[in-house]
Write a protein that binds this DNA or RNA. Structure first.
Length: 293
DNA sequence: CACTTGACCTGTCCGC
DNA sequence: TGCGGACAGGTCAAGT
């Protein structure tokens, strides 16, 4: 699911909706997931204020006034959906969205705030996680210790991008883009989209890609991530923003989920779907050619 | 070391 | 209509 643009969209939404609210009640139905601690979770969550929402890679960090943070990974099907105090139980979600009546059978955690508004953490496939951690320890979780730089950071340059990818000379470029320890936040959608934009075959080995093409890939990846954030991300199946609304990036996508449709560069050539690095992969066979071995 | 596979889960879609 | 299998935006561990 959610890749960098989707998680960033949720972060923006939650920042506008949750700041300053006090948590009045916490409910969960997730024996093997949350809470992750054996101490009294309530004392670090109830009556505390939401201070801020951060994002690192595809992970959201909700900072609380108790000096603890709720750390959330949505994985494939996670959602964080906010509803106001006048939301009626069972009324159905008011927006044109993928969310029905809340809570639903995928709801794992519900936070109720002092003004009666609520935040639902839903996750159909239960791959996602939510953890309550001391804010100071958040950077020390395994995922953050390993994760690579943010591709949209101001100080992340094309040179730095090339240097990081070059460490994996013999790997397929798509596998490297998807590796969170190389670059943070890229998933299947934006890997396919950026490789099409740079005219690189996803199975191309990194060592076969010259500096110029690498620079193009860097620029295209950043432009695509920014465009998607601007469009509120991609809603394929489950993704919705903090208000339960879909994102519209997929209507701008060039290859993702466009198998069998004409390539926008070559109207006589159809987008193909294959499997690269274990993932469904979309390419134009005419503009993304593999170099002969 | 690099890559593949399986696991974690549930739901949907497609072919028979 | 039912059933089996493949597949789905992400990581992680184990196997080759």
């Amino acid at each position: 699911m959610p890749e960098l643009p989707e998680v960033e969209t949720v972060r923006t939404g939650l920042s506008q909706l949750l700041l300053g609210k006090l948590i009045a009640k916490e409910e969960h139905d997730w024996p093997k997931g949350f809470p992750n601690t054996d101490f009294d979770v309530q004392s670090f969550m109830i009556g505390v204020e939401i201070l801020g929402i951060r994002r690192r890679a595809k992970v959201l960090i909700i900072d609380l006034s108790s000096a603890y943070s709720l750390v959330v990974h949505l994985k494939m099907t996670g959602q964080l959906v906010f509803v106001g105090r006048d939301y009626r139980f069972g009324a159905g979600h008011p927006n044109d969205s993928l969310v029905g009546s809340l809570p639903d059978k995928s709801t794992r955690v519900t936070l109720t705030f002092d003004d009666g508004s609520r935040l639902f953490f839903n996750d159909q496939r239960k791959f996602g996680w939510m953890r309550l951690l001391p804010t100071a320890e958040v950077p020390n979780i395994d995922f953050f210790k390993r994760v690579g730089p943010e591709p949209l950071a101001d100080d992340f340059t094309a040179t730095a991008f090339r240097e990081r990818l070059k460490v994996r000379q013999n790997s397929m470029i798509k596998a490297v883009l998807l590796d969170q320890s190389v670059i943070a936040g890229v998933g299947n959608i934006y890997a396919d989209e950026s490789l099409w934009a740079a005219k690189i075959h996803p199975a191309e080995r990194v060592k076969n890609i010259g500096d110029r093409k690498m620079n193009t890939l860097f620029n295209e990846l950043r432009a695509i991530l920014k465009l998607s954030i601007d469009k509120g991300g991609s809603s394929d199946k489950n993704y919705v923003n903090a208000e339960g609304k879909r994102g519209s990036y997929l209507s701008f996508a060039n290859v993702f989920r466009r198998e069998g449709k004409p390539c926008f560069r070559h109207p006589d050539t159809l987008i193909e779907k294959s499997r690269v690095a274990g993932r469904g992969t979309h390419t134009c066979p005419k503009c993304q050619k593999l170099k002969a071995a």
